[in-house]
Structures are given as C-alpha cells and as structure tokens.
Simulated scan of single mutants.
Amino acid sequence: MTWLLIILPALMAGLIQGMTGFGAVIIMMIFFPSILPMTQAAGIGGIIMLPSEIALALHYRHDFKIKRVLPALVVYAAVATWSVQLGKVLDTHVLRLMLGVLLIALCIYFLVSKNADSRHYPWYVAILFMIISGFFSGLFGIGGPLMALYFLSLSKSMPEYLANVQGFFLFDGLYITSIRVVSGILVARLVPYILAGMLAGVIGTMVASRLSSRWDLATIKPWIYRFIGLAGLYYLFF
C-alpha cells in the first residue's frame, strides 16, 4: 500500500504537470501525508519532479532571464528556509489544517479567477506572492501556483515564461532539498521512494505530452481544481 501511495500519486502528478504546467506537488501532497510525516512528505514531493524541471530548464535555457528570476528567488528562498524549520516544530494537526485551508483556497482561487494568468501585478502584490509561496513551499512544497502567475504576468512569450518559471522552480527545488537534507528531514531510507516517484512522474509527464492534443484543457482544469478542494476538505475534517 505504501508503494502504491507513492507511485500512483507521482504518476498522477506527472499527468497534471504535463497538462497544466504546474500542480504536481499539490497532487502528491494530497496522498503523501497519509504515509509519511508532513515535512518528509513535502520533501519527497518537492524532489520528485526535479528531472522534469531540469529537462525543461535546459530546453528553454536561451530564453532564461536571470535578472528577473534572482530577486524573486532570494525573497522566496529566505521565507522558505524559515518555514522549513517551522514545519519541524509545529503540531501535525495544525499542519494538516493549514494544508487543508491552502488547498481549498487554491481551488476557489483558480475556479473564480478566470483571468488570473493575464494580469500585471504591482510590486507589492508580487512580493506578497513570493512571501506566501515561500512560506507554503517550505512547509508543504506547494509554492508554484502564485509564482507561475507572477512570471506569466511578466513574460512576452510562452518560451520566456517556461524558461523563467522552470528555472525558478529548479533553483528552488535544489536549494530547498539541500536545506531539508541538512536539517535531517530527507534521509537515506527515503531514497527508494524518491526514485520510484521520479520514474512515475516522468512516465506521467510523457503520457500527458502524448495525450494533451486530444484533451480540452479548459474542460479538464476545473475538475482538477475541484479535486484539490475536496482534498482540502479531507485534511480539514479527517
């Protein structure tokens, strides 16, 4: 059962990532905390998609703008470093409640805000995005949606957006993973789970790339968001 709760969510996460461009860790964090402590679940979820992020970052490297990514990464990483340590001392019940609220908020946000990815955000909203995303990334590995919106609002083309957002996620993933290793959250006994999850995630992403031309993304996305909301209700009440 443990292996199924690693492999199947990672496979599903790869499919979601391939269809929507984000959300892999959100899907994994629906299932992983049922078999692992919250901090380790977040650590595994954060590292499983690294191979896909590396491949995408290399593919779009010519459109990557370090001056745009670096300031956001500094703010984001500073907050995430603090919240990683916070996650080690917070009560598990409190963490589950926070995760539930976050998932429900994400569900409502994406269902209600139809044009969220086409807005240009002022600097203070952008900084708030970085702080909120860094905080929840450190706790749960879920920091992608708001940062994706931030980079999308600044990009003039899809290659530029993908280059910056995947480069950001890659640097963030490597940094936060190293923090979790040094902090004793990610340990050697978790390596088999990580490798199995990486393989499943890559397979899911490959399958999604083949099927995406047949699916209507506008129809699929609302159901993904509703599923995230149901998961949030589960963590709030069970």
Rank of each mutant, 00 (worst) to 15 (best):
I27N: 04
G87P: 06
F135Q: 08
L111N: 14
N164R: 00
A55V: 08
L58Y: 12
F151C: 06
G167R: 00
M98W: 12
L106R: 11
A41I: 05
P145Q: 09
A78N: 00
M28I: 07
V181S: 00
S209Q: 12
K221P: 13
V165K: 00
A24T: 09
I220R: 10
G45E: 03
L217Q: 14
A188I: 08
L230N: 11
P37N: 07
L11H: 07
G23M: 07
V89W: 10
P9Y: 09
I203Q: 02
Q40G: 04
F135N: 08
L154T: 08
A188N: 06
G138D: 04
S133Y: 02
L70G: 05
V94G: 08
I30D: 01
G43C: 02
L8H: 06
I203F: 11
G201M: 08
I47L: 14
P51M: 08
Y161G: 02
L36F: 13
I179C: 03
S209P: 03
D63R: 12
D117F: 15
I6Q: 03
Q17D: 05
A231T: 10
I44F: 05
G229M: 14
Y121E: 05
S178Y: 01
P145H: 10
F227D: 09
G141W: 04
L111F: 15
F136Y: 11
S137Y: 04
G87C: 08
F151R: 00
P222T: 15
Y124S: 08
R180V: 02
I176D: 00
D216M: 12
G18A: 09
G100F: 10
L149K: 07
M49F: 10
F136L: 08
F32K: 00
L58I: 14
Y234P: 00
Y161Q: 01
L70K: 05
L174H: 01
Y150P: 00
A218I: 15
I54Q: 06
L236E: 10
F22T: 09
K221F: 13
S34T: 11
Y76N: 01
I228D: 10
W223C: 14
G204K: 02
S137E: 10
I16P: 06
A116Q: 14
L149A: 12
L154F: 06
W3I: 14
A188Y: 04
M206R: 11
L217V: 13
A80L: 03
